[in-house]
Simulated scan of single mutants.
Amino acid sequence: MLLLNKNDIKNIFTMRDAIEADKEAFRIYTEGRSVVPLRTNIPATKYEGSMLFMPGYIEDLDCAGIKIVSVFPKNINKGKPVTPATVLLLDGTTGEVCSILDGTYVTQLRTGAASGAAIDVLARKDAKKGALIGTGGQACTQLEAMVEARNLEEVYIFDLDENRTKAFVEEMQEELKHYNTKFRVAKTSDEAIDDADVIITVTTSRRPVFDGNKVKKGATISAVGSYLPVMQELDPVALTRASKIFFESTEAVLSESGDILNPLKDGSITKNDFSGELGDVISGKILGRENDDEIIVFKTVGIAVQDVVTAKKIYDKAVEKGIGIEW
């Protein structure tokens, strides 16, 4: 069994690798070539948290896995990850656990890469300005995926905690300096999304975090944070203005996300407004962006096939390069 920590993974697996892994995962999922039960969610109400168990199996890749991930928003005040996790990768030919990976970092990678995949596939090619709303544990890889997918000149970043936002911007400006993108602090979400070509929301908010009327024509929105029916980052106005609405998994989104469930319930949108799954765009079965004026929304809640494919790609590279600890 191979043990792989965050540094091991960072040394061998890039954000571009993660984006390509997610693209493959979405295609496999949409083509029905995986077994991905809906995740089990056990609430830890006392601590306003949730513990999630996410299994998956991919016969074509001879692998399976399960991620155990918790979402405890108050961890940010303790200096701990908001989404601590562990991934167990299984050899699909024997059923044995072949690797244990730092699931917190795998989650950050594959979740950021989901936005990166959506931007890569759906955003305008000439996108120059980005907006990121939220600076929690998932924000670093969301930002990296955004600038990996498009050559952006600047990204405006907003969070309710201005001091945390300033610290985040300074840290990211140094860590991601090789992208030559300028990161700026936005004082409001309206300022962040003003004229933005790509927008990522990654919060646990229970009410919309930006004004959907202010989204420019041609923008691509990746909504990441709403993983429960009570959470709703997206302004329904953005959905009604959108030309297309894509999911990574229609089943998962309609089981979990208030971003979509609440507007469906109040009649702001209907299921006829849904365009399909990103995997079908990637495989060429349906069209993505057709012109530069379309507002396109991608809603993701995360599915286990992302973790399994990403973990398998990381494991294969680690074995090839002799990285990790045998146990």
Rank of each mutant, 00 (worst) to 15 (best):
residue 4 L to Y: 07
residue 5 N to I: 10
residue 17 D to A: 09
residue 18 A to V: 07
residue 23 K to H: 09
residue 26 F to A: 15
residue 28 I to D: 05
residue 29 Y to Q: 02
residue 33 R to D: 14
residue 40 T to N: 13
residue 42 I to S: 07
residue 62 D to R: 05
residue 69 V to E: 12
residue 71 V to H: 06
residue 72 F to T: 14
residue 72 F to S: 07
residue 77 N to R: 15
residue 78 K to S: 15
residue 82 V to E: 15
residue 86 T to P: 05
residue 88 L to S: 12
residue 90 L to Q: 03
residue 95 G to T: 03
residue 96 E to G: 00
residue 115 S to A: 15
residue 121 V to L: 15
residue 124 R to V: 08
residue 137 G to M: 06
residue 142 Q to D: 08
residue 145 A to Y: 04
residue 148 E to C: 10
residue 148 E to L: 02
residue 152 L to T: 05
residue 153 E to F: 08
residue 153 E to I: 11
residue 156 Y to Q: 02
residue 159 D to R: 07
residue 160 L to T: 06
residue 160 L to Y: 01
residue 163 N to H: 02
residue 165 T to Y: 01
residue 165 T to Q: 03
residue 167 A to M: 07
residue 170 E to C: 00
residue 185 V to D: 00
residue 189 S to I: 02
residue 191 E to K: 13
residue 193 I to S: 10
residue 196 A to S: 09
residue 197 D to K: 01
residue 198 V to M: 08
residue 199 I to S: 05
residue 202 V to S: 08
residue 207 R to N: 12
residue 212 G to V: 06
residue 212 G to L: 07
residue 214 K to I: 03
residue 225 G to N: 13
residue 232 Q to E: 12
residue 234 L to E: 10
residue 240 T to N: 10
residue 246 F to T: 05
residue 246 F to M: 04
residue 251 E to W: 09
residue 258 G to H: 02
residue 260 I to D: 01
residue 261 L to F: 04
residue 263 P to M: 06
residue 265 K to V: 05
residue 269 I to H: 08
residue 273 D to A: 13
residue 274 F to Y: 05
residue 274 F to G: 08
residue 278 L to Q: 08
residue 280 D to E: 14
residue 286 I to V: 08
residue 292 D to F: 14
residue 295 I to M: 07
residue 303 I to T: 15
residue 308 V to I: 14
residue 308 V to M: 05
residue 310 T to F: 08
residue 312 K to C: 00
residue 318 A to V: 02
residue 324 G to A: 00
residue 325 I to K: 09
residue 327 W to I: 14
